[in-house]
């Protein structure tokens, strides 16, 4: 069958008519398949939600038990018939529980990548390439400028700064699901064993990661009475980026503002946000990963969504791969 009839964009999100479901819908729907737990992909208020166990857990943590009427756990690699199609979930390497969703009918298979990355991440399963007729790829960092450096080097920058400025608190802005835990895990791997202080918004998710066997070491709440400001001198504090522009940040002595994001590659972006120490660490694929993935999967066709579609479409055309932008609305850029 024609792939355009198997999955197509609607204002509510990507829709599969034959299966009667949406993938990562941006409005409440009857039946939703969710790739991962980030708020712009996983919203509350659907009737029936199918996702990996971890993603369902994360939605429950964020929205409460009543986030939907009924749930169905997706086992990675298992094929589940839904209506006239078959769906399967495969690791995407983005955050804990993240999955690509393959939708198949009459011999035509479309893989919706959701958000994905290809490099090692100690906090989630690695991306698995799935052969398909159409690969729907994200393009958050879909420009040839984006070459994310080795994350160990970025962690080393933070560790160096801690030695250089032991009197200053180092405030690391990191998205509360995935990025924060990855930064903490990478710091532990690099041998940093001092307590790491976390913003309240991170606490339950960090606990959840721990309960899933992902060790984050000694985490403490970044809350103290104002009289003891100096106790954060030389400490690492991790919190959502928005918190550091807020009055919340005043409890720390002479803070070094840090932001862990793929956007930090562009110097002007860092400067505009007042970031002193950019850490270029992303949970999305950079340009070489995007084009290597397309080259590896060799899909008949590529549909490009949320991000800088035009450059990736252009690259596919230059390679002789059929490609077009898929205009979906309602998804955020990482950390913005």
């Amino acid at each position: 069958m024609k792939p355009e009839t198997l999955l197509y964009p609607t204002p509510k999100g990507l829709y599969c008519e034959k299966g009667g479901f949406y993938i990562d819908p941006v409005q409440p729907v009857e039946r939703a398949l969710i790739t991962h737990g980030h708020a712009d992909h996983a919203r509350a208020g659907h009737s029936h939600v199918m996702a990996t166990r971890e993603t369902l857990d994360i939605m429950r943590i964020r929205y409460g038990d009543a986030f939907c009427t009924s749930t169905q756990e997706a086992i990675l690699g298992a094929r589940t018939p839904i209506g006239d199609i078959t769906a399967s979930f495969h690791p995407a390497g983005h955050v804990l529980g993240s999955a690509q969703i393959a939708v198949e009918a009459n011999g035509t298979r479309i893989v919706v990548s959701g958000d994905y990355k290809r490099r090692r991440d100690p906090t989630c399963l690695a991306f698995e390439p799935v052969p398909c007729d159409v690969f729907i790829t994200e393009a958050t960092f879909g420009l040839p400028v984006f070459h994310h450096p080795d994350d160990r080097g970025e962690i080393a920058k933070l560790l160096t700064s801690l030695k250089q400025f032991p009197e200053r608190a180092h405030l690391v802005g990191a998205y509360s699901l995935g990025k924060a835990q990855r930064i903490i895990a990478l710091m532990r791997e690099a041998g940093y064993d001092a307590p790491i202080f976390i913003h309240g918004a991170l606490a339950r998710l960090c606990d959840y990661y721990e309960s899933e066997g992902i060790g984050l070491g000694d985490l403490r709440p970044a809350t103290i009475d104002a009289s003891d400001k100096q106790s954060f001198a030389g400490a690492v504090v991790v919190g959502p980026p928005s918190a550091f522009a807020d009055k919340w940040a005043r409890r720390f002595p002479d803070p070094v503002p840090i932001f862990a994001s793929g956007w930090m590659l562009v110097r002007q972006r860092a400067k505009q946000r007042g970031v002193e120490l950019p850490m270029i660490i992303s949970d999305h694929s950079d340009w070489p990963e995007l084009i290597a993935t397309i080259g590896e999967i060799k899909p008949g066709e590529v549909w490009v969504t949320h991000g800088r579609e035009e450059a990736l479409v252009r690259w596919c055309q230059l390679q002789g791969i059929a490609a077009r932008p898929l205009h979906l609305v309602g998804y955020d850029d990482e950390g913005e």
């Binding site: 040839p144 562009v266 800088r308 690259w315």
Partner: peptide
């Protein structure tokens, strides 16, 4: 080394020639 259109998209995004080249160079 690089397609002109892709370079233009990149330069438009970054805004600084030296920085664009340093980032796209492979």
């Amino acid at each position: 080394r690089m397609d002109e259109v892709l370079f233009r998209y990149s330069y438009d995004y970054v805004g600084d020639l030296a920085e664009t080249i340093s980032l796209v160079w492979e």
